[in-house]
Write a protein that binds this DNA or RNA. Structure first.
Lengths: 110, 110
DNA sequence: TCCATGTTTCATGTAATAATGAAATGATGG
DNA sequence: CCATCATTTCATTATTACATGAAACATGGA
């Protein structure tokens, strides 16, 4: 991942509503959620959500697909993985002795 | 890590100069770098850097220590680890089957 | 075809963010 | 204790991000 893509993703996630939206979609999994369902769940206006979904989509963190009248949104886990990869690579830059101990402490809560 | 802390860290990193600064400090390792050295390396004004170092410090991503006339800055890897942990936990929320494959693809470049 | 539903686009006002020059602070060596 | 160096603080200005109401667009059903 390029630095500019990482900046886009970080900016997209560095926003209360967008972080909530992304987390919600991650939890929704492969079925995704319709824009209306998201707005309902997060108690926000349709157009505010739409603007922020556009920003998440531009950053590659979500994708959309029309389904009848509504439009479903899905979290793009690949992008999330690439972002984590970028941040980790960032930390390692030539200094494995600093990076590895950090990663060892990182455990997946699964 | 709390969501509000994660948002602070994400906001702090979602800025070209601050991301560069943080990466530089990570690479500098435990010796850290004086503010003047950072400004020199990144070719930016002292006060611009100072403002952005303050933001990084408020987010917990760097710490500082005076050393003679200059002030040294250090990357706080714990905070970075916690942020990564938050983002990963975020992705797992109740859905290990989605999270684990992602993590398996994540390898440390060390 | 016409209407209702779901979502996005547009225009606008406002608030937050960012960089800058100038001045102030703090620390050191002479 | 003075001069100097390193860094921060302050005030100002420009830019950008944000939420909103109103209007537009697309789809499916009567």
């Amino acid at each position: 991942m390029e630095k500019t893509d990482a900046l886009d993703s970080l900016s997209a996630l560095a926003h209360d509503l967008r972080l909530d939206t992304f987390r919600l979609l991650v939890r929704a999994g492969p079925e995704g959620m319709a824009a209306g369902e998201i707005a309902e769940a997060l108690q926000i206006r349709a157009n505010t959500l739409s603007n922020n979904l556009t920003i998440l989509a531009a950053a590659g963190l979500v994708r959309s697909a029309r389904e009848g009248r509504s439009i479903r949104y899905f979290a793009r886990m690949e992008q999330m993985r690439d972002l984590l990869g970028f941040l980790i690579q960032d930390c390692c830059g030539g200094r494995p002795e600093q990076c590895q101990p950090m990663l060892d402490q990182l455990s997946c809560p699964c």
